[in-house]
Simulated assay, not measured.
Amino acid sequence: MRARGRVGDPLPCPYTSLERMRAFARRGQISLSAGASGGGKTAFWSNWALNARYDGDYPIPTLYFSSDSDQHTVGIRIAQAVLGCTQDEAEERLEDSWDLFHEATEHTWWDFKVGPTLDHFDAEIETYSLVHGQYPSLIVIDNLMDCDAGYGADEGANQREALLWGSSKARETNAHIAFLHHVTGPNVNGNYPIGKDGLMNKVDKRPRLILTFHQTDPGLLNVSVVKNSTGPARSDGGWFTSIPWLPERSWFGG
């Protein structure tokens, strides 16, 4: 334990109710966040990277791999969150000035390669460390389905190998690596709690923390803790917190 360094230290979190559930994103570990398409995964982690602060002042150094969404889509979502406005308003205001956007996101390094390989992840992480003199504290991989681990059309093998790589890389860099993932069957509607059995290809073994997302009421994103190696969880998704969320403005409450 004395030799562990920063492994296991929790990253700051902008969601106080999730912290009360002891669902921490810890250094040196990987997590998996799963939900329906458009169900809030990207918004949830973008907001985490954007608004979590060390000591209330210092944002988390972040490397965000966005193979699932292009520059325009992500840029507008982030601009909405920063400016607190609709998509049309964000596009109009960005035409006048990018200063506020750059100031809010300068701690985040973005990569938009489609179908990234594990070698690409390695190269980008090392490049980040060379430029910044340190590894990122948070690495987001959006999403697991797009990772190419060299197993061709075998989707499950690609995903399991990517998670194995992530476990090793998290320990090597002391970063927390958050993988975003899809769900299967009736869970794709995203309107009731999703358990571990709803994960695409049942890739629940390696992550130390698994969160799933669903919505039952407008204005709220329900986040279930279905696996938690250092805290309570319910594998059926029945233990969750409801976080205020206005997707049309990319806004989250605490």
Rank of each mutant, 00 (worst) to 15 (best):
S66V: 02
D68Y: 01
G115A: 14
Y151I: 00
R27Q: 12
A25C: 08
I177K: 06
D122A: 08
V183Y: 01
V183I: 12
D96C: 02
N189G: 10
H181T: 07
P207S: 11
Y151S: 03
A25G: 01
L211W: 15
I30T: 14
R53Q: 10
A25E: 03
W110M: 15
F65M: 04
N228M: 09
P218Y: 14
F179W: 13
H182R: 04
A153K: 11
A43H: 10
F252I: 05
P186V: 04
E248M: 10
G75Q: 02
G231K: 05
G56Q: 08
T73G: 00
Q80I: 00
P207T: 12
A170P: 04
L199A: 03
D119W: 10
G28V: 05
T127I: 01
S168Q: 13
R26E: 11
L83T: 02
A3S: 12
G84Q: 04
Y54E: 09
S167R: 15
D119R: 13
T127E: 11
T127A: 13
N222D: 15
W98L: 14
T127W: 08
V203Y: 03
T212P: 03
D236L: 06
T212G: 07
S137K: 15
N47L: 01
F213K: 09
T117E: 10
T86V: 07
S37E: 12
Y192A: 12
R206N: 04
